[in-house]
Design a protein around this nucleic acid. Structure first.
Length: 490
RNA sequence: GGUCGGUUGGCCGAGUGGCUAGGCAAGGCUCUGCAAAAGCUUGUACGGCGGUUCGAAUCCGCCACCGACCUCCA
């Protein structure tokens, strides 16, 4: 375990706190995953990318992480009709609800792979944990914090608020919430406006439903996370994360459920990621302003001028802190793409740097700034500052290369280890591998390069330039420098 | 209406009571047959008005504008 402390912004306290696991070196991390009633959009993915960095960094620091990210496949109701989201979608597509679940779960996993996210260690589903949810509801009823009404079970917020603090996470004051509540389906069974469903009675024509002590029905949305986080991480665990739009009511209700069931206080650190916006407005499925992750890659969306590699999209996101809103724009993406290429060239220059005596000054500058880059990650995952430091290192490396400076082999390998550790292991970025071209292409290009070099030595600029321009139009760049000419595919 | 957060240079975006953030773009120069790459170099900032302070983009107050949440959402 490395000595440096990781600081995390804890929504529960509103403060940046030193991270101390309950049972080091083990860390329990729970993140609210997607509801698989349609495709995840780029805003959803931003959250998972942010927590991917947390997961990776914790592991880099030597922690043994159990990363749990659920899939909501039942219980998430629409607000207008009170119908289950998955079931509604199934009705519209005229297929089974579980087909919907499978289809969009697979899609989510494919996107996750394309963007290079580490898989969670456990990916539990709500439908797979009906028993656990029923048992938790029973505990809450037994403790007197829930009541049955007309085949449904509701959480008794009024009663709960007398013993515990309701609204701690979101800063809500119950009395002030009273006035502006929306009128939801099933509201007539509630005793108190703020009560929420733990179990919802199912109508006759519902396909997804389960028997319970209170009749046939479905679990409430907030419940699954409480039941599953408790099952896999324990009554009190280390970190619970999600998008900040889940702060209230979802996470507030989770905390209440865990407390009421006598399961402890749920997580010690709550982390919330900010939204991806388009023209300053939140990207949201309900606002129909979503861009899908694969549309970013293909460029097939009216707001996108062209496609961007997944790694560039991630890099673009890392240049904003996870807690700040991130506004999408083509210009910013293109700037990020150029920066990303520059970073790649910096790392390549470091790899190719000749080993020799080297100077102590160079060594301490490189190692110092690379350690700064790491330390910035310990400051609540400050990826923008981390990347700024990587650019500083890149500048130093290029300057050294420009002056044909060498580096002693120990320093070089240390620098490469940290540089690659940050870029590959923590940020999960992979550079396009120019050396992985196939052999025959290599030979063809080598031959063309030979022809061009012959023309150049004969000062036959017309032929040399015609070759360069012609290949440039199919995406191959020739460049000439002191050591000779080279080519690369863009 | 309530709660919380934000407003930084041409664009994106960090940040701390005093010391160049960084990237992209733009201008100049070096290298180069030309170009690219690379290096060197140069501008333009902290929404408005007050206050605290030796000193405020940073702390406080008021105002303006923007956003999120207020039982659908990552």
């Amino acid at each position: 375990m490395k000595a440096d402390t990781l600081w995390l912004q804890n929504t529960l306290s509103g403060k940046k706190e030193a991270f101390e696991p309950i049972n080091p070196p083990f860390v329990g991390l729970y993140v609210c995953g997607p509801t698989v009633y349609n495709e995840v959009h780029m805003g959803n993915l931003r959250t998972f990318i942010s927590f991917d960095v947390l997961n990776r960094y914790l592991r880099y620091l030597g922690y043994k992480v159990r990363y749990v990210r659920n899939i909501t496949d039942v219980g998430h109701l629409t607000d207008d009709s009170g119908e289950d989201r998955v079931e509604k979608r199934a009705r519209l597509e005229k297929i089974e609800p579980m087909e919907i679940v499978q289809k969009y779960s697979r899609g989510f996993h494919r996107v996750s792979d394309v963007f290079g996210l580490l898989d969670p260690d456990v990916e539990p589903t709500a439908t797979g944990h009906i028993v656990e949810q029923i048992s938790m509801i029973q505990s809450i009823i037994d403790k007197g914090f829930a009541y049955e009404a007309n085949g449904s079970v509701y959480f008794d917020v009024d009663r709960y608020a007398k013993e515990f603090e309701y609204g701690q996470l979101s800063g809500r004051v119950l009395e002030e919430l009273d006035q502006q509540t929306r009128n939801l389906d099933g509201g007539e069974d509630k005793r108190f406006f703020a009560d929420f469903a733990l179990w919802k009675k199912a109508s006759e024509d519902t396909i997804m439903k389960w028997p319970s002590p209170w009749g046939v029905g479905v679990p409430g949305w907030h419940l699954e996370c409480s039941a599953m986080s408790t099952k896999y991480l324990g009554k009190t665990f280390d970190i619970h994360g999600g998008g900040m739009d889940l702060k209230f009511p979802h996470h507030e209700c989770e905390i209440a459920q865990c407390q009421a069931a006598g399961e402890g206080s749920s997580a010690r650190y709550w982390m919330h990621t900010n939204m991806l916006t388009i023209n300053g407005t939140k990207m949201s499925k309900s606002l129909n302003n979503s861009i899908l992750p694969m549309e970013f890659v293909s460029g097939e969306h009216k707001l996108l001028e062209r496609g961007y590699p997944p790694m560039v999209v991630k890099f673009f996101m890392y240049q904003t802190h996870y807690s700040s809103p991130l506004d999408f724009s083509n210009e910013a993406l293109q700037a990020a793409e150029k920066g990303f290429v520059r970073l790649q060239k910096g790392m390549e220059s470091l790899e190719n740097m000749p080993e020799g005596k080297g100077s102590k000054e160079d060594a301490s500058v490189l190692l110092g700034v690379l350690n700064d880059a790491l330390n910035h990650l310990s400051d609540d995952l400050n990826t923008p500052r981390c990347i700024a430091s990587l650019f500083e290192v890149t500048n130093s490396i290029q300057r050294m290369q420009h002056h044909s400076t060498s580096l002693d082999s120990d320093t070089k390998s240390q620098c490469l280890a940290i540089f690659k550790g940050i870029v590959h292991d923590i940020l999960g970025l992979e550079f396009s591998d120019s050396s992985a071209q196939n052999d025959s292409l290599d030979k063809v290009m080598g031959a063309l390069l030979g022809i061009r070099n012959k023309a150049r030595t004969e000062k036959n600029w017309a032929v040399a330039d015609a070759l360069r321009d012609g290949l440039s139009s199919v995406g191959v760049t020739f460049s000439d420098n002191k050591e000779g000419s080279s080519w690369e595919i863009k």
